[in-house]
Simulated assay, not measured.
Amino acid sequence: MSKIKLNVLGISYSQTQTGAYALVLTEEHGERRIPIIIGGFEAQAIAIQLEGLKPPRPLTHDLFLNFAMSFGVNLVEVNIYRLEEGVFYSKLICNNGGKDIVIDARTSDAIALALRFKCPIYTSEEILQKSGIVIDIQERSETKTKKAEPIDIEEKKTTSSPKSNKYKNLDIDALEELLAEAIKKEEYEKASIIQNEIKKRKSQ
């Protein structure tokens, strides 16, 4: 069975389940996207890595990375191999220097680990046919001209929100102080919003 490589496009609020998030994966050489519903904790773990935030203390997935590397175990790839009743099944392909080890994992955890180990994520054509969403013509054009940015996990259906508007009157120095404070307090959702505002200012 041929493998198709996937990339993490971003995270947004789920429009179908209250309190949940949609993790969006996209095929590397194609136009289909796979939305996967995940919980808030897993969304935060993925968003932290996408945004390049460094927590003051290791989180669960960071601990797994440190533990594995300390004992010479590397995560070689993540494989999303099955879709049943809306649930995606994944496995971790690990290597200890001598042989491959296959470990069953929730897809949300597998993606969070793949981002930390910087390993590829794969799926099959069958799963893409079942769950893949083809982007429309306008999105396709934008994708070719602009690299997709991680979707802020605080982003709602409206283009502006009170949580982001309150930072618009602050200068970059003040925003960077707030960012450092949010990271120190482990308020990662708030840190993500502030960091996006800083990036927006610096790109203008």
Rank of each mutant, 00 (worst) to 15 (best):
E28R: 14
K147I: 10
V134T: 07
E181M: 11
F71T: 15
K184F: 06
K156I: 11
Q195W: 06
A68M: 13
N169V: 03
L128G: 00
A105T: 07
F64V: 14
L63N: 09
D100Y: 14
L92Q: 01
A43N: 03
N169A: 10
K3S: 05
N96D: 15
K157S: 08
D152L: 04
T18L: 12
S164P: 03
F41C: 09
K130V: 00
R82M: 05
K54I: 15
R116M: 07
M69I: 12
I36D: 00
E177I: 14
I48Y: 05
V102P: 01
I135K: 02
K184R: 14
N96L: 11
P58G: 05
K163I: 08
R32F: 02
K168F: 01
K147T: 14
I48A: 07
L170Q: 00
A68Y: 09
E126W: 07
L50V: 10
E154A: 08
I172V: 15
N79H: 13
Q44S: 15
I153W: 03
Y167S: 00
I103R: 05
E197D: 07
Q49W: 04
A114D: 03
V87F: 06
K5V: 09
T16D: 15
I193S: 01
Y81K: 08
S108R: 00
R140F: 11
V8I: 15
T26L: 13
N79K: 11
L83N: 02
L63C: 09
G97D: 14
R140Q: 15
T60Q: 13
L113R: 03
R106A: 04
P35M: 09
A148T: 09
S203Y: 12
E149L: 12
I101H: 08
A43T: 07
S12P: 04
D152C: 08
F117V: 07
S192D: 04
K91E: 13
K199H: 12
G72P: 05
K166V: 09
Q138M: 05
S164A: 12
G132D: 02
E154F: 06
G19D: 02
E31M: 04
P35H: 06
L175D: 00
Y81N: 13
R116C: 04
G10C: 03
N169T: 13
F117S: 04
N66C: 00
K130F: 00
E28V: 15
E77T: 09
Q204G: 08
G40W: 09
V76W: 03
L59E: 06
F71N: 13
A47N: 08
T26D: 11
P56K: 12
E51Y: 14
V76P: 01
P58R: 12
G40V: 09
A105F: 03
I11D: 00
S124T: 07
Q17C: 11
Q129K: 14
R116P: 03
A148W: 02
T145L: 13
S203A: 15
Q204E: 07
Q195I: 04
E84S: 10
E181V: 05
L63H: 05
D173C: 06
S141R: 14
L83T: 01
T26V: 15
